[in-house]
Nucleic acid binder design. Structure first.
Lengths: 333, 333
DNA sequence: AATATTTCTGCAAACCTTTGCAAAAGCGAT
DNA sequence: ATCGCTTTTGCAAAGGTTTGCAGAAATATT
């Protein structure tokens, strides 16, 4: 079976390709009768326009590439929905890519999007991305770029972020109000700048409360289960274990609660816990988990709006939107 | 800034376009010295091949479209990862699309993939899809199609499914072993065939145990929170409420447990619960939730393999793979 | 030095669509 | 019939790449 093209239709009706093209696009120049004939035959033949050809000709694809670490993380799944809702309203399409937190895959996906000549790229960098040449390239090619959720100061472009410093600061404040004085932090990889930012917020809050920084109370983990468990065990096995823990993610916070309960800690009495992300499971656990809610959908919406703004502007913009997170207090703190 | 093309490089080096093309592809016909010059300049200019043009010419895109209801559902996020792992190993790319359970969006996404001339489509239909013309069109166009997770008997193509009938049957058997005799089922929309299949499994198990079918104990819901809560309340408010509930998803099961606990039911003593999907939250709840684990990643792997098989075969195949689910027993049953 | 052989490069067509411009067709008025 | 006008259609170029084949250049053979 051969590909059905405009030519197939044109030949069969004794028309020219251009007439058929215009007829299908409902161009006013074409006679009604002709249009009807063309449309009818197109339908009968299952004609589907070849957008590769169209996009090649128009040198733009009306497509926005979205690159995230893992769609399995609800934050990204929600953000993508926000992006899609806005983007499609404006006649663009979305291509979703995941990097599985791999730098190599990130480079590859970006390359692929560029070679598809997408109109713009919305990206949340992988945890292991420490070189940015692939992003500089995007910018050099004048392809609009918006970073979201995970910051990267080395790259100048529009960004949508959460007030991570403040969020961590406030979480520590909550612990202090509960008279917790041995506050620990389990953070993500150091080269992840939002992890740093939360760490600073944590440190600042301690400092402002005139508490000494205890380095034993700071653990940095990657996102593997093993590394998380190790950190939790180390903390809880300290001669003077913490009586409050702020964690980089709910996943870590949940694991912390499970382990702490096993070890006989009473929560929040012996140990208070606050996580990040406000996942659905937080409400279901016993005790329920306090967590910092990040406006994931809204982040997607903003990122999409920034990309659209940039698409309709001539010079490159680099606007920054900082969204507010909300500490949801539940039983664990 | 103009687009950098092969011509840009060719002109600058005094070569022809074809030589440059071959040089970049490391074609053996091209002299080493030439290759080096070309590659160097390409790099310097940030040349990125235009895959629209390449794919147009070769009439195939080496791309597989994947369409799922929502990537927010962990089952789909995991399945997609399985698909990607296999597909990319074979030099193909994946385009992810979600339909948000909307029939209209499903039609649109399929159309978009066809117009992109993807090599194949892997699909899990939306809960509200009851017409299949868009899928017949895919088949008519000889585009390989694989359905997964959600069946659709009206469409003949390769499929990867779970043994839903058996899974539900076995869950009811567990209830029976616990001497539960008032077993309810909260299912998904009727037009979702896997929901039907689970219902039949449930009914068959009751029948085989010589228990009468009580229609009050069967509720069908859509996936909205409101409809789920309504069903749960109705069941628990019955004069003789059930003492065991099988639900279509863990989300429903979790909500059931929360409500039941509020109403003073002791679980599993007064009410046993089994859900579907084995989500991460199941282990964190109190009581922990028994659930039927579906091999999501494996489903993706199989779907990918079926698509690849079909891509390398001439005639259309319609192979069916039924994967085994596993009932994970926890406290709730 | 001329021929045969190998190595390397270029021409041109093809993929399918869109669109400016020219040309044809239709038609009413003279 | 002829002109002028409007309506409708077709021509051809452009977009960037790949690839079979022919041709040029370089090298080897006589």
């Amino acid at each position: 079976m051969n590909e059905i093209t405009l030519k197939t239709i044109a030949d069969q009706l004794g028309l020219s390709i251009s007439t058929v093209s215009r007829a299908l696009k409902n161009h006013p120049d074409i006679k009604q009768a002709t249009k009807q004939k063309v449309v009818a035959l197109a339908q009968q033949l299952d004609y589907e326009p070849n957008s590769l050809a169209a996009q090649l000709l128009q040198r733009k694809s009306k497509t926005i590439g979205v690159v995230v670490p893992k769609i399995l993380y609800p934050l990204y799944a929600l953000a993508i929905t926000g992006i899609e809702d806005i983007i499609t309203q404006h006649g663009y399409q979305v291509v979703i890519c995941q990097t599985q937190e791999s730098y190599a895959k990130e480079v590859e996906q970006i390359k692929r999007l560029l070679s598809f000549r997408v109109s713009g790229i919305i990206l949340s960098i992988s945890a292991y991305t420490t070189q940015y040449e692939h992003l500089y390239k995007v910018i050099r090619k004048n392809t609009p770029l918006v970073l979201f959720n995970r910051d990267c100061q080395e790259v100048e472009c529009s960004k949508v972020l959460i007030d991570n410093h403040k969020a961590a600061y406030e979480a520590v404040r909550v612990f202090l109000e509960l008279n917790k004085n041995r506050i620990a932090y389990i953070g993500g990889p150091t080269y992840l700048q939002i992890s740093q930012r939360r760490l600073y917020g944590y440190q600042k809050a301690l400092e402002d409360a005139n508490l000494d920084l205890n380095l034993d109370y700071i653990k940095l983990v990657d996102f593997e289960k093993q590394s998380i468990d190790e950190a939790i065990h180390q903390l809880l096995a300290l001669p003077t274990p913490p009586n409050a823990i702020l964690t980089f993610s709910d996943q870590i916070a949940q694991a912390t609660i499970v382990v702490a309960k096993q070890k006989g800690f009473s929560i929040p009495h012996d140990l208070a816990v606050i996580g990040f992300n406000n996942e659905r499971a937080d409400e279901l656990m016993t005790p329920t988990l306090s967590s910092i809610d990040q406006p994931a959908y809204q982040m997607g919406v903003c990122a999409a709006e920034l990309i659209l703004k940039q698409l309709s502007s001539e010079q490159p913009l680099s606007e920054q939107i900082i969204l507010k997170s909300t500490l949801i207090r539940r039983q664990s703190a």
